[in-house]
Amino acid sequence: MSTPALAPRFDALDPNVVEDPYPEYARLRAAGPLCRIGPGSWGVTRLADVTALQHDPRLGSEFPAGYHEVSVGDGPASAFFQRIMLYRDPPDHVRLRRLMSRAFSPAVVRQLRSYVEELVDELLAPALAAGRMDLVPELAYPLPVRVVCRLMGIPPESTEDVRRHAMNLGRAFTAVVPEHARAEADVAVRWLREHLGALLDQRRARRGDDLLSRLLDAEESGDTLSHDEIVDNTVFSFFAGFETTVHMITTGAAALLSHPDQLDRLRADRTLVGTAVDEFLRWDAPIQGTARYVREPIEIGGRTVRRGRVLVLMIGSANHDERRFHRPDRLDVGRADNPHVTFGGGAHLCLGAFLARMEGAVVFDRLARLAVLEPDGPTVRERDTPFRAYASVPVRIG
């Protein structure tokens, strides 16, 4: 089935969209459930459709090798993307996720909470003495990086190198990666695989209380993870374990700074911290879209999307769908009815969601306790990234 009207086109690189995509999303949703993104690529704009498609077996996450090669080249980064569970379909995805999930279980995360609380206090202490800080380099990055390093058993002396290479790898999680970023991603994959592979070999000889040791011990129904699968998926999990959390902290803090009424509300009732974290994730989602490969023809809004096409589930647009969210463009730290799709859904629901929520709850509880939390200059958006991110969020604190 086809319709005579041409679906609107979405340009994610338009400077106005980069700065604030939400008015454009509203225009696209009003026009229909689909928009054009590029050759053979469609965007899904509305929450109901995005939610349903996250569970639809006609869509897959495993793309042909050529897709990754067009995106990031034919080097180590392309091969890496083809091996990690993010881009695998059943049965491999089921096996990898079942075994990897043991390392990110709620029980494991709960054991980290006291460490996270102590770490947040440690990171805030110098800023409290100085009366100011930039939340991005002084809190939002070091916190989740150090937490995930502790979770995985990465030595403190390696933390900065691992973070730097993981950030370079993160810039390759986009549709078409610039040449300089492709080279950096290839270098990052080589370095991370070699470094984590060496740590894994150490754990084979001597187990510890960390993710690598748990993965070596993980066994279910006689199935285990191979050395390469552990290395590749640990590299991915390291990146996924800190990158989204960094941006959730910075976008949430920036949102509070621009909405002082909501900061006052959170100060008055810190039991709202949990709903506030989910509202930050909804209001300005760090990941704005996720791609799926069409394995069988699928009809959306009277249009048939053919096999071999790409559907981009537009998370940022879905999270602002006025058909489901009351006053979606209003920040509401007490929003209880909040079925956002920032962590995905279905088989690919984010493994690190529980960890991210816990870290966010600790951070915003601590920030809400401050007598002074106000802007100390303009916030600056990060441009060289596929995420909704900030390069700088300067604040006065006390």
Rank of each mutant, 00 (worst) to 15 (best):
E359R: 13
L96E: 08
R270K: 02
G302P: 01
V189T: 15
D228F: 00
A48Y: 04
D121L: 15
D332E: 08
V176F: 10
Q54D: 07
E157I: 14
Y22G: 15
A129M: 09
L311V: 04
P260G: 02
L263T: 09
G32L: 09
Q54I: 11
R193I: 05
D376N: 10
H195I: 03
E118C: 02
F63S: 05
P144C: 03
P394V: 03
G197E: 02
S114K: 15
L349C: 01
P137Y: 10
Q262F: 05
A30H: 14
S221R: 12
D261Y: 03
T3V: 15
G334M: 08
G345N: 00
V310L: 12
P76G: 05
A356V: 04
L355Q: 11
S392M: 08
Q111I: 06
L349A: 10
A79Y: 01
A48I: 07
E160W: 10
R27G: 09
V176R: 09
D264F: 14
Y390G: 10
R388Q: 09
A347L: 14
E19Q: 08
V380I: 12
P375A: 03
A26H: 13
L128S: 02
T250C: 04
E19V: 12
V18E: 11
E229T: 00
V145M: 02
F239I: 05
D92I: 06
P90G: 08
L281M: 06
L225D: 04
R88N: 10
M167A: 15
P21F: 13
R388V: 09
P178A: 11
T342M: 07
A291R: 14
P339A: 05
P375C: 06
Q82A: 15
R292Q: 04
R366L: 12
L119N: 11
T271K: 14
G302F: 01
Q202E: 09
A5G: 12
L212Q: 00
A347C: 10
R357T: 05
